[in-house]
Write a protein that binds this DNA or RNA. Structure first.
Length: 160
DNA sequence: GCCAACGTTGGC
DNA sequence: GCCAACGTTGGC
């Protein structure tokens, strides 16, 4: 079946832990370790081919660093079964996994990180979950329009 | 099932 | 490092 409509997402990562450069080097990675139910549900809703904005949080330059794409739909997150992992979950079983992760692949690194301050200034982005007060969700849907606006901002070398 | 205490996230 | 906001835990 062909993809009828592609969805758009945003994932947060601390670049000290895993950055867009790490993804560029590895080309693909399992987006594991997410331990929040709302975020998990969004991960499960991802389909192969969906576009993903890659956001750098808690870093020198906070903002959107590039684009990834879903390369494999969500499957049970192996780290929940790994006793040595910080993401181990004793309540999860192979029959009843609790946490899921998709694979995402590298698409592009923007020429610059689009800083969150610039996102806040864009009238068209006011409704984004990312920009709401107290928002901490590390996986969230974005609209196609929002995706396109941010993509265009990333490909420009500076604000205008 | 309420809710206070606690831990975490994440911008500043 | 601060702290607001949120999610989770656990006593009752």
């Amino acid at each position: 079946m062909l993809e009828i409509s592609m969805a758009f997402w945003l994932v947060k990562s601390e670049p000290d832990v895993y950055s867009i450069d790490d993804l560029a080097r590895e080309q693909s990675t399992g987006w594991n370790g997410v331990r929040n139910y709302q975020a998990r549900n969004f991960l499960k809703a991802m389909a192969v081919g969906d576009s993903v904005l890659f956001y750098h949080s808690s870093s020198e330059v906070i903002g959107v660093a590039g684009v990834a794409a879903v390369t494999r739909a969500a499957y049970p997150d192996p780290t929940q079964f790994d006793k040595r992992s910080e993401y181990f979950d004793a309540a999860a079983t192979a029959k009843k996994p609790r946490w899921f992760c998709p694979d995402i692949g590298f698409v592009e690194k923007f020429p610059r990180v689009v800083p969150i301050g610039e996102l806040r200034e864009k009238p068209g982005l006011k409704a984004m979950a990312l920009l709401q007060r107290g928002s901490r969700l590390s996986v969230q849907p974005v609209s196609e329009r929002e995706f396109k606006v941010i993509h265009a901002m990333g490909e420009r070398s500076a604000a205008s």
